[in-house]
Design a protein around this nucleic acid. Structure first.
Lengths: 148, 148
DNA sequence: CCTGTAATTGAGATTGAATCTCAATCTCGA
DNA sequence: TCGAGATTGAGATTCAATCTCAATTACAGG
């Protein structure tokens, strides 16, 4: 947290932006929850603690956190965004359980290599990608089988 | 088209639903445009031809077309859905140019295999997935380089 | 070809995520 | 400490998508 806070402060200063308690609160909340967080959850979580920040500020701050490389936006196929801390967490993909919503992370060198090769073939300059796999996690798979 | 129309009619009958001119028009429009179509574009395209179908009907019909396996929903990372005909078009992934919006399709056995293996390892029952790659298509890549 | 009924439609309201507006407030460097 | 310029928040707005419900339509059975 301390290090990340420093990164954020440095980023803000470089952009001639200001460090405010609202911005600090949003970053702190991201650390508290870890995992994949929705903007609305973050908003209500802050409200409950009376450390409010308006909806607009939450979204604006998340934007800044992304620009400074502290947070990344995650698409879990829910039709709205989730956010996660980058930290020492390298790029990865997500498996989403369509029954309980659980999210597993994975990454695979073979897939990365294959993608690189495909882009080259299509003369496509890759900048980023999203890969969401949907299905049933171990637990829900078992439950489902019993019910049938 | 004829064959697909038959499939749709059969599906509707089996579900005790009715074949209406609005539903026919939506399916026809999907054939006219091919490629990846947004629901709103489809709506306005129909309106221009006075073969209207309300927004509600367009969305409802797309839902039916998906249930009957004629159309599939595509996530191109735009924050809203696109739709494409399934036809003899097997499953594939998308490369989206962030500059001009062009969409390239690809699919890769190696990636499929790797994914299968990963799911097995995580005891995850795969049902579907979305894979969007963002970057610059050949043309935009060249233009971009010149401008720098 | 009729008819009755259950499905369908469309206009407009509603939802939910996300963004915008702008007057009041706050931050921070000089 | 002061003031310019950044920030905030309440509420309006946008946009995709869904819902509501009265009026309309399709179609199976007679």
């Amino acid at each position: 947290m301390h290090k990340t806070l420093g990164t954020f402060a440095k980023y803000l200063k470089a952009q001639k932006l200001k460090f405010t308690k609202e911005r600090g609160a949003v970053l702190q909340e991201m650390f508290l929850h870890r995992g994949h967080l929705e903007a609305e959850d973050l908003l209500y979580s802050l409200r409950r603690k009376k450390k409010g920040a308006s909806r607009a500020t939450v979204y604006r701050t998340l934007e800044l956190l992304m620009d400074s490389g502290i947070v990344r936006k995650v698409d879990l196929g829910h039709g709205h965004s989730h956010y996660e801390l980058v930290l020492d967490h390298p790029h990865h993909e997500h498996m989403v359980c369509v029954n309980c919503g659980k999210v597993l992370e994975f990454s695979d060198k073979k897939i990365e290599m294959a993608l690189k090769r495909l882009c080259k073939k299509s003369r496509f300059e890759h900048t980023s990608h999203h890969f969401q796999v949907f299905g049933y996690c171990d637990k829900c798979r078992r439950t489902k089988t019993q019910e049938e």
